[in-house]
Design a protein around this nucleic acid. Structure first.
Lengths: 215, 215
DNA sequence: TTTTTCCTCCCCCGCGCGGGGGATTGGACT
DNA sequence: AGTCCAATCCCCCGCGCGGGGGAGGAAAAA
C-alpha cells in the first residue's frame, strides 16, 4: 500500500461515529483524520483537513448531509463523498447522484462491504448500495419512453440538426434541400413539441432522450 | 435458508463454466441446474429449466450474451440475468441496463464478491461492478467537469434564465433590471463560452453540468 | 379510388437576438 | 490613490427566427 486513505466522519450520533472508527481501524491503511457532528462543522472540517473521503450521515441537525455534500462538491470537488443513511432509500438519492456523489450506502451494511465501498470510491470508482442502484436504474429505464407527440423521421433529423450551431440555411445545405423546407419542418416541430423556440425545443429533446448530450 | 438458488451458466469456455461451478458449489444453497455453451442453447435451457438466475458470458459464438439477455427478458422477465465479461467494460452495458439487466460483473471478480452479487440480484436488488457503475453513472450525468472559463455569479444566474422560454425582456423583469443589462450579460456569456447563440450556450451549459436538466 | 400524411417549396411580417460600439457606479485589490 | 472588474445601463444595425399564410407531388392508408 502507498499513502493511507484519510477519512472524515460526519454524523450527529457519537455512537455511530465511534462504531465507524472501530470498523475502519481494522484496516492498517485507513486513517480517520476527523469527526464532526453536523453538516456545517463537517464542511469546515473537510475544507481544512482535505481528506480523501468524507462519510456523511444524510439526516443531521443544523445542516443535513445533502446540503453539506452539495456545498462540498462546489468548493472541493476532489473530496469524495460517501453518503450514509438508514435502512430506507431516500428519494433524495436522485439529486445526490445527479450532483456527483460517488457513494451511497445503508447503515446496515456489513463492515467488510463498507471497507470495499470506501476503497472503490477513493480509487475513482462509484459505489451505490444494491437497493439504491436498483432504484436509480429503474428511474433510468423509465424515462426513456414517454413521448406524447410523434415526429416524422425527417423532422427528427432536422431536430438533431437544430441542436447544432448551424443556422437553418446551413442545415438546408447539409440536407440538400431549400432553407424554406427546413424552416417548414422546424415550424411543425415546434408546434408538435409545444415549444416557443429552437433553444427550448432542443432542451426538451434532451430531456426526452430524443437527443443525446455527449460529453 | 429457504429454497435453494437455482443457477444456469452460459459460457462458451468449458474451463470458465467448470470454474464457476466450483466456486458456486461452496455455497450450500446454490444449485447449478444447467450449463450451455452459446446464447441460443442458453435461451432454450433457461426457458425449460426456469432458473432463478442466469450467468451469461457477453462474448459467445452463435448468439452473444446481449442478444440472449434481451430475448430472455422479453419471454421470461422474471429470470434474473448476471452478465459476465472480460476485464474491459463494454459499451453495450448501456443497452443492457436500459433493458433491465440486474447484474454486470467482470470475470476478474473475487469469488466471495460474485456470491454476494448473485444473492443481491436474486433478492431483487441490482449489482453492477464498480467500474461499470462508474461508467453508467457518468452517462446519466454527474461528475462535474472542469470548466475552462469562469462566469460571474450574476452571469450564471442569467445563464440559468437563458435556459427558460423567457425572452431577455422577460428575464429582465424577473431579475428587476433593464433589458439592456440582461443582453449585456448574455453577450459576455456567449463570448466567454465561445458559443454562437443562446441555444448552443444552453446546450453547452447542460453538457458542463452548469445547468441541471430536470425531468 | 379517395383521403391523408409526408416532404418539398414559396411569400410576408415583425420581433428576438448577436455583435459592435460606449458610459457609469461601486467594491476589491495593489 | 490608482487600477481592475463586476454590474448596471444605453444606442444602432442586420440577420436569424417564429408565425401566419399557401401549394404541389408522391406515397401510404382508408
Amino acid at each position: 500500500m502507498s499513502d493511507p486513505i484519510r477519512i472524515l466522519i460526519v454524523d450527529d450520533h457519537a455512537v455511530v461515529r465511534k462504531g465507524l472508527v472501530m470498523v475502519l481501524r481494522q484496516e492498517p491503511d485507513f486513517e480517520v483524520v476527523g469527526e464532526a457532528e453536523n453538516g456545517r462543522k463537517g464542511l469546515e472540517a473537510a475544507r481544512s483537513l482535505n481528506p480523501d473521503i468524507v462519510l456523511v450521515d444524510l439526516v443531521m441537525p443544523e445542516m443535513d448531509g445533502q446540503e453539506m455534500a452539495l456545498a462540498l462538491r462546489k468548493s472541493n470537488p476532489s473530496i469524495k463523498v460517501m453518503m450514509l443513511t438508514g435502512t430506507e432509500v431516500d428519494d433524495r438519492v436522485y439529486d445526490l447522484v445527479a450532483a456527483g456523489i460517488e457513494g451511497y450506502v445503508l447503515k446496515n451494511i456489513e463492515p467488510g462491504e463498507l471497507i470495499r465501498a470506501i476503497r472503490a470510491v477513493v480509487s475513482g470508482e462509484a459505489y451505490l448500495h444494491p437497493a439504491v442502484m436498483k432504484k436509480v436504474l429503474n428511474r433510468m429505464g423509465q424515462q426513456a419512453q414517454p413521448v406524447s407527440f410523434s415526429l416524422t423521421p425527417r423532422e427528427l433529423e432536422v431536430l438533431e440538426w437544430m441542436a447544432t450551431p448551424n443556422t437553418y440555411r446551413q442545415i438546408a445545405n447539409q440536407l440538400g434541400v431549400s432553407e424554406e423546407t427546413v424552416r417548414s419542418h422546424a415550424k411543425s416541430i415546434l408546434e408538435k413539441m409545444k415549444q416557443p423556440n429552437r433553444a427550448q425545443a432542443v432542451l426538451a429533446a434532451v430531456r426526452l432522450k430524443l437527443i443525446t448530450v455527449k460529453d
